[in-house]
Simulated assay, not measured.
Amino acid sequence: MASPIEYLNVVRYFRDARPWTTETTAKPTWNQVEAAIRQMDNYCFPIVQLGCRDPDDDNDSFNVVGGDGRLSLFHFMAEWLYDDSSGNRSEVRLWESDQGYFCCECNVISDLDLALRITKKYFETGSYDELDAVI
Rank of each mutant, 00 (worst) to 15 (best):
C106E: 08
T21M: 11
G126Q: 12
I47V: 13
G66N: 02
D84Q: 10
F123S: 08
D113Y: 00
G100R: 01
G67R: 10
M1E: 01
F45A: 12
D83F: 01
D132C: 01
L131A: 14
D84G: 00
G100T: 09
R70V: 01
R38T: 10
L114Y: 02
S90I: 04
N59G: 15
M77D: 14
D113K: 13
I5D: 00
D84L: 07
L116R: 07
W80S: 10
D60E: 15
C44L: 05
P46E: 03
V134H: 05
Y128I: 08
N88Y: 04
V48A: 13
A115T: 06
N42M: 10
N63P: 00
V64G: 14
I135D: 02
Y7L: 03
F123M: 02
G126R: 07
C103D: 06
L81D: 04
D129G: 00
W95K: 05
W30I: 03
E91N: 05
R15E: 07
R93M: 12
Y43F: 15
G69M: 05
R15N: 08
S90H: 12
A2F: 09
Q49C: 14
V64P: 11
D16G: 09
T24W: 02
C52P: 00
N107M: 09
W20D: 11
G69H: 02
T21F: 09
V92K: 04
S61Y: 14
A115H: 05
G87W: 07
Q99L: 03
T29S: 15
N59Y: 12
I5R: 02
Q99G: 06
S86H: 09
E79S: 14
W95Y: 10
E124S: 06
D132K: 04
R93T: 14
D111N: 15
N88H: 13
D83E: 15
C106K: 15
C104E: 14
L94S: 11
I37K: 03
T22F: 02
L94G: 12
Q32C: 05
